[in-house]
Each structure stands twice: as C-alpha cells, then as structure tokens.
Amino acid sequence: MLRFILLASFCMTCVTSVYGGTPIAVPDTMAERVKACTICHGAEDKVGRDAYYPRIAGKPQGYLVNQLRNFRDGRRYYQPMAILLENMSDEYLYEIAQYFSSLRLPYPAPEQIPMQSEEIELAEHLIYVGYPGRNIPACSACHGDVLMGIEPAIPGLLGLPRAYITAQLGGWRNGGSMRGQVPDCMSEIAKQLTDAEVNAIAKWLANQSASGEPRPFSTLLPELVHRCSQNIMANGSKE
C-alpha cells in the first residue's frame, strides 16, 4: 500500500513537472516571507555575515516592532531598511517582529578581543554600576541583569559584534541613530561616555557569551521607565 502511495505521488509530481515547467514550491511560511530580511541578518542560526547586520532572532518583539516602524517612518535612519519597509502595514511589521522574536537559535561564539585588566574593570563598572554622578545608569539597569534585554522593548546587548556596538553607540552620540525622539535617553547617556569608555564597553560585551532570556518589565526601575519612556514604550504595543 505504501509503495502504491509513493508511486502515485511520484507520478503526480511528474505530471506537474510536465505541465508547469520547473514549478517552484513556495512554502506558505513566515520564513519564506522574510527572505528579504535574512539575506543580510542571516537565516536561522547565523548572525549577519557582516558586522553591521545585527542578529535579530530572539530579540524582544516590542523592540523589533519599534525598530521596524522607526526605519519605515524615518525616525531611525538607514536607507536600505527604509526602502524595504516603505509600503508595509503595522500589522505585517508586527507579525514579522513576532516571528523573529520567537526564534530560539544558538548564539555565535563570543569574540576574543584582548583587553587590559583596567579596561575590563572600567567596562564592568559601567555595565553593572554606572556613574550616577554623571547621570550614567548601569547598562544592566535597563538591559537586564544578564544583559539579554527587558520585555517588551529593550534589546539584549550580548551576541552582537563589537563593530556593531561601537557603531550604534557612535550613532547615539552624534544623534545619527534616531531623529526627533524627545527625550532620547540612550542618546543622553551615550553623549556622556568618553571614547575610551565606548571602546571598553563594546569590547567587553562582544567578548561575553550570550545566554538567558529577556527579563520581565517589572524588573525595570520606575525612574528609568520614566526617563526612557519614549524609547521603550512609544510603539511597543500593537495599535
């Protein structure tokens, strides 16, 4: 019986081939629909082939929705993304964010950038303690104690290449990342950082292996919620 079924399906395949040339089976899946994304951001278990295409798998959905909308609406400026998303609805962007957010894929091995012990100390102080006197909170205060982000809209900081982190912090400092969001807490914080501090943070983060899950919203301190409300709440929910 099984043989018969196999034979029958083989024949049907042949018939299709004869009449349809070389038919391409297009899976009705999100993975197929987002091929335009994964060509740069890497399919499935890969980060981008290039340092400037960050991993998006497993990032909080609200964060991804915010970024997609920011790119589309010109608040975060990167022309290739803006062109790609130009004619897409909020609903579809939400679905795309949900898809990437739901991916649980292994992280790449961390980079191995040599660091002096003072540099490591500086990075760890910034990341876990901050400099309240300079109005610089600890990175972990917003990005979670394991630096994997906080639901629904704060991204994790691990599993990203150093070049990308440096570029993003640079963007925050010179106002190139985001336009017109006031107040813009990440920009304020980045502007407080020295070049040496940016370098130390970027190296240190890239050297860590990523593990763990984004933390729940309740772990965020009320004063930081207030300070960063624009960044973390603005578009985080589906409209």
Binding site: E32, K35, A36, E95
Partner: peptide, 16 residues
C-alpha cells in the same frame, strides 16, 4: 534595493 509589494487588504502578507 529589493522591496515588498504593498500590503493591501487583498495581499496583506506579501513575499519580498
């Protein structure tokens, strides 16, 4: 540049 067809009621989840 690639691109997606517009999302419309008739094609809400386009391939790109």
């Amino acid at each position: 540049n690639g691109g997606y067809p517009p999302t419309t009621a008739g094609n809400p989840r386009p391939y790109g």
